[in-house]
Amino acid sequence: MKKTKAKNIILVLLAVLCVAVLLYTLYQGLIIYIPQKQEQQRFEELRQIVEREREESSAPVQTKPTGDDTQPVYTEEENPAVYSDIVRINDDFRGWLRIEDTIIDYPVVKSSEDDPEYYLHRDYDKNYSFSGTPFIGAGADENSDAFVIYAHNMNNGTMFGTLDFYADKEWAEQHPYIHFDTANEDRVYRVFAAFQTTIGGENEFKYNERAGKLNDEEYTAFVKDIKEASVMFTGECPDKKTQIIMLSTCSYHAENGRFVVAAYRV
């Protein structure tokens, strides 16, 4: 009888422990899921702002009729800039990044060189954010010969969570273009390689240190090094010096791993 009672107590304790573990797991999931959901909702609001501005900028603007003309006059000369509202929200805005058939559709920012990773865990409104905001790294900007845009590799596939699709050459060939539009111009880049490296590893490829201004010799050497380090190479390299954009995120092939996609401006 005592053994049965003791066994029942053990079973109850185990059941309570299992319920406690389940509740804790659900709690942990919720405190991660809910903020990430809110963060992505904010990005969706920013996308809607941009979409509205695009529609307004493509529509003719009505001006007052002149003289005896009673018909309205339309002109596109005074149309608002597509990203004017986005810049007003945060003047660290440097461009909008898009890749077709992925969730990558985000504003890109750049902070000061004193704190280049400011947006690693801050949203576009500069509040704390686990997901952060894609940002241009140290030593370069959107007008440099080469620059890097960093973002997290989120488990839910957001941010740069789909960037490693470019490890597949067939997928890369079907999605050859990266769109990065600045406040002043729309830009298109052609993907030519993707590579992996490990920060602090024996054969680390310090691609981030090659960002910035490059002379012709440095540029040629950099393209060659990207090709040699690549896990995916399309077979096409820039045939002349043109701007290189690199998208960088964490990779789980190794501790402190990185996965990087390189593209040149066309």
Score class of each variant (00 low, 15 high):
residue 41 Q to M: 13
residue 116 P to T: 14
residue 126 K to P: 09
residue 51 E to C: 00
residue 47 R to G: 04
residue 82 V to K: 02
residue 41 Q to H: 11
residue 113 E to M: 13
residue 116 P to V: 15
residue 46 L to P: 04
residue 77 E to Q: 05
residue 106 Y to E: 06
residue 111 S to F: 13
residue 91 D to R: 10
residue 78 E to C: 10
residue 100 E to Y: 09
residue 60 P to T: 08
residue 46 L to A: 01
residue 67 G to T: 07
residue 127 N to H: 12
residue 64 K to I: 15
residue 116 P to N: 05
residue 60 P to Y: 06
residue 88 R to Y: 13
residue 71 Q to V: 14
residue 63 T to F: 05
residue 109 V to G: 02
residue 47 R to M: 08
residue 94 R to F: 11
residue 124 Y to Q: 04
residue 91 D to Q: 12
residue 58 S to V: 07
residue 122 R to D: 01
residue 110 K to S: 06
residue 81 A to D: 00
residue 71 Q to C: 08
residue 108 V to N: 00
residue 86 I to C: 09
residue 68 D to R: 14
residue 63 T to W: 02
residue 96 W to V: 01
residue 56 E to S: 05
residue 115 D to S: 12
residue 55 E to C: 08
residue 70 T to D: 04
residue 111 S to Q: 11
residue 105 D to E: 00
residue 69 D to G: 15
residue 66 T to Q: 03
residue 106 Y to I: 14
residue 98 R to D: 03
residue 86 I to D: 00
residue 52 R to A: 06
residue 57 S to F: 07
residue 77 E to S: 10
residue 77 E to M: 07
residue 68 D to L: 15
residue 62 Q to A: 09
residue 78 E to Y: 07
residue 42 R to I: 15
residue 84 S to P: 13
residue 90 N to V: 15
residue 113 E to A: 14
residue 46 L to D: 00
residue 77 E to I: 09
residue 104 I to G: 01
residue 83 Y to T: 13
residue 91 D to V: 15
residue 62 Q to F: 07
residue 78 E to I: 15
residue 95 G to H: 06
residue 110 K to R: 13
residue 83 Y to V: 12
residue 52 R to M: 11
residue 104 I to W: 00
residue 99 I to Q: 01
residue 94 R to C: 14
residue 69 D to N: 15
residue 105 D to W: 00
residue 120 L to P: 10
residue 108 V to M: 06
residue 49 I to K: 03
residue 82 V to R: 01
residue 52 R to F: 08
residue 115 D to A: 13
residue 80 P to Y: 03
residue 70 T to A: 12
residue 62 Q to S: 07
residue 110 K to E: 05
residue 89 I to A: 02
residue 56 E to Y: 02
residue 117 E to P: 11
residue 80 P to C: 10
residue 93 F to V: 14
